[in-house]
């Protein structure tokens, strides 16, 4: 199985420009992220809000320009592509956005929105536009009769299905899902997840699934990257594997179990996520970590093998 996507040392720094009365500040949104995404697999990225998950998704699709690192898609160096080459490549790598309410132009009908990928890529839809719209809407479980509606006439779940239809219109091989269910009702979430599973099997898609919902990621993904403040702190190679990083363990312990008899003490993390501006040396999690020791505040831990998988921690459990 070849790697569809190879990410090496990807980083993004945002620098606020300084002026006469303030210092220029640097924010490390994503720091030294590396991973391989083999064809047909589903990798989940979890972390709290603000940990750089969405930025990572946008870096991979080059919607934001990375500050450092390399990106290979199907063996091609994405960062070496010109804007025109990149536009052509986008047909093969698509994204489903978190907020379906603003992901469709309010002035576009559903038909026009679904046909936009063909228009911008200069591809003639097979068997004509109307048949293509019908086929795509059927594929994502929408009534083709909705084609002449406007986005505001659709529910959140329906809009997200339109978002998926748009993303899949040009048959991409990679689909980046940026919290596709975060702004939907729970019952609708389940439908969308079911649809995504079905589409992966039917179309042989490769997913990068971004979420803050660990239980959802464990259910849906083959492999999990846990992010904390822009860095990958643990890579769980399978969803049942034992976590070693104190942060992952806290994250796992804070998911609820649907069993009223299940009793356990939830120990919420103390303190706040440190500011991503002007990072101090050492582990970013040190201030909140129950396992903290001297070295944690002095040296930033690298990802290294521990009990069979990669962990970035000086004192793994």
């Amino acid at each position: 199985m070849s790697n569809l996507l190879e990410v090496r040392n990807l980083a993004k720094k945002f620098t606020s420009s300084g002026g006469a009365f303030r210092k220029a500040r640097t924010m490390h949104a994503v720091n030294d992220v590396s991973f391989d995404l083999p064809e047909g697999r589903v990798i989940g990225v979890v972390g709290e809000s603000g940990c750089g998950k969405s930025t990572l998704a946008r870096l991979i699709l080059r919607l934001i320009e990375p500050s450092a690192g390399t990106l290979h898609f199907n063996g091609e160096d994405l960062r070496a592509k010109t804007p025109a080459q990149m536009r052509d490549l986008r047909a093969h790598m698509q994204m489903v956005f978190q907020d379906p309410y603003s992901a469709i132009d309010p002035r576009y009908t559903i038909e026009r929105a679904v046909l936009e990928p063909f228009l911008v890529q200069g591809v003639k839809p097979i068997d004509g536009a109307a048949a293509q719209v019908e086929a795509l809407l059927n594929m994502v479980g929408l009534n083709p009769g909705l084609a002449d509606r406007f986005p505001h006439q659709l529910s959140g779940g329906q809009k997200q299905r339109v978002g998926i239809a748009r993303a899949l219109a040009l048959r991409p091989s990679l689909l980046v899902l940026d919290e596709p269910t975060a702004s939907l009702d729970v019952s609708v979430q389940a439908q969308i997840i079911g649809l995504l599973e079905q589409l992966r099997d039917e179309l042989g898609l490769t997913y990068l699934f971004i979420s803050h919902d660990l239980s959802l990621v464990r259910y849906f993904c083959d492999e999990i990257l846990v992010m904390y403040l822009g860095r990958v702190v643990e890579v769980l190679p399978d969803t049942n594997g034992q976590a070693c990083h104190p942060y992952t363990i806290t994250l796992m312990n804070s998911t609820f179990v649907p069993d009223p008899k299940h009793r356990r003490v939830i120990r919420p993390l103390e303190g706040e996520v440190p500011s991503p501006f002007d990072l101090k040396p050492g582990c970013a999690f040190a201030d909140r970590c129950p396992q903290v020791s001297e070295i944690c505040r002095a040296e930033t831990p690298e990802l290294s093998k521990h009990s069979g998988h990669l962990v970035a921690c000086h004192n793994p459990i």
Binding site: L61, L63, S102, I104
Partner: peptide, 10 residues
């Protein structure tokens, strides 16, 4: 987001 989505479509 719809602008980003359109850029992402190429």
């Amino acid at each position: 987001t719809f602008i980003e989505a359109s850029i992402n479509l190429g």
